[in-house]
Design a protein around this nucleic acid. Sequence first.
DNA 1: GTCATTGCTAGCTTCTAATG
DNA 2: CATTAGAAGCTAGCAATGAC
Length: 534
Amino acid sequence: MTVTTPTTKRNSGNSSLVAAKNAAFDEYYTLWTTIENEVNAYRDYDPDVFRDKVVLLPCDDPEWSNFAKFFALNFSRFGLKKLISTSYAPDSNLDLVSYQPTLFEAESPQFDESKTRINGKKFVLTREDTNGDGVINIDDLRWEYLDGDGDFRSAEVSALRDEADVILTNPPFSLGREFIRWVLDAGKKFAIIGPNSFPTTKEIFPLFQSNQLWFGSTGNTSDMVFAVPKGTPIAPADADKAARLGHPADENYDYTRMGNSCWYTNLEDRKAEYLLGTGEQLPRDRCSTADREAQRRRVGVIGFGRHQQCVDGGDGREVGGPQRRDVVEESGDRERSGDTELTAGQDRRQETYRDRVDVEQRQDQQGVVGRRQVGVQSDRAAHVLEVRVRQADTLGSAGRAGGVDQQRVVVGSGLRGRLPRRVAGGVEIIDEQLGPIDVELISFDDDECGVAVIELALRLRDEELGIDRCGDRPEPPRRHHGDEEFDAVRQPDRDDAEGFEEFELLRPVEGEDRYFVIQATILMSGPGSFRSLT
DNA sequence: GTCATTGCTAGCTTCTAATG
DNA sequence: CATTAGAAGCTAGCAATGAC
C-alpha cells in the first residue's frame, strides 16, 4: 500500500502526490475490525459463504497481515477447505525501507538468507492438524518460498488464484484495477479494499454497470483507519482522528485514517434480499449462488449498504445486532399473511423534503412509499423497514455530490394526497408530467395504501419500469453525463443517515431514461417507544 | 426549563496539477 | 484529456454551557 507522506500543511495540487510517490512506503495494515465487519456482512447473509472453499489472500503475510490471521483463526468456524496466503518479496517492494525476517521465518528449517529477500512466500493452512494440538489454527500453517517474488500477476500466484474460490486482500491501490481484472478474468469471488474513485474510472465503472462488482457493506461511509509502523510520518490531524475512531497509537503501531477507502466485492450480502423483502420472493433454497446471482442481476443492485455490526464474541457466537436472516423470513411471513404491520400510532416519521433549491435541469424526486414492521429482532426491539422510492436524475457534472445534494429539487407535488390505485396486476399512480411512478408523501394510516406502495416498489423493480434485465443488454442506455449513477447511489445514504440500510439503483431500460432508487431505512421500536437506530 | 451560543467531530466533499 | 492508494477543510448534527 502506498500512501502520501503526510504533511502538516495542506499541500497544493498534485505536488503532494508526487512527493508521496517519491517518499512512499508500503506498510499500511488493514485493521482486524475492518476485515471482521465486512466478512461478517457476507456471513450474515450466507453463513456458508466460505464453507468448503479455498480462500486466497494475495500479498498477505500472516506474520503481519490481519487478513491471514483472521481467516486462520476462523478457519474451522467458517468451514474453510484451504487457506492460502502469499507475501511479496522485500526486494521487489521498492517502497519498503528496511526488512528483517521475523524469528518465525529465520528459525524455520527452510529459511534461506537469499530467498528471504528476493522470493515471495506461500503459507497454506488445510484441515490437517499438523502440530497435533487438536485445533486447526495459525500454528498449523505451513510455508515455503515461492519461485518468484509473489507478484499476483505471476504464473504461480495466478495458479493459486485459479485454485481459489474467494480472494480477499488490500492490494496496492495503484494496481487495484488490474487486480480486479485479474480476479474477474478467472471468475472468482473477491473482496478488496480500494479507493472510492474506482467507480469513476473507465475500467471499473462498466463493471458496476454490469453488476460484476459493487461496494462492500462496511467502511464506505466513514474514514477507514489503518495501522502503520511506529514512526511513520502522519499528519497529527489524521492521527487524532484515528484515535477518536478508537485507534490511538499503541506500542506496536501508529494509526492514520483515509477518507477515500472502501470495500469492493462481488460477494453477496443483504442488499438484494433485504430490500423490500426480496428474499421472500425467492424459494426457501434461495441460498444457492445461482439463484442469488440471478436475483441480483434482475434487480441491478449496486452501491452502499450499511450493516449493523454483528459483534463476534470470539467463541463462535455472534452476539449483538439483529439476525438479519430472521428479519427477512419473518417479514416474508407477515407479508404473505397480508399483514404489513404498519406501526399505527407510532412515529410516522414524515419525510421532510428539505433544501428546496431551484436549479434548472436538476431533479431528485423522492417520496416515502412504504413502511412495515419486519420482525422482532432482539429481546426488546422491533425493527421497521421504511421503504422509499425516488427518481434520481442528477444531471450535471460528476463528482460534485455536494452540489447534487444541495440542488435537490422536490417535484411531484401534484401527487400530494393522491393515493396509489390498485389496478390489475399492480398499482397505478399516474402523473401527467412525471409518468406512472412518482410518489409523494404517503400516509400509512390506510393499510391498503401501505400494501399498495410496496407493490408499487416491487413493480418498479420487477416489471416494466426502470429495470435493466441484465444479460439481454449489457450496456443500458445512458445519458451523456457520466457519473449520475454514482451520485444517485451516494445520495440516499446522506439523505437519511439514521438507520439507513440499503438501497437499490434501478437503471434505465430501453425507452426509459430515468433512474430510480429504492431505499430502505431501518427504524427500531422499543417497548412503548419508537426510535430510529442510532 | 427554554433558548442561544459555542465547541467538537463524523462523515464526507472539494481542491489540485503532474503525468501519461 | 483522464487519472491520481491524497490531503485536509467543511458542515450538519450534537452536546455542553451560559443567559435569562
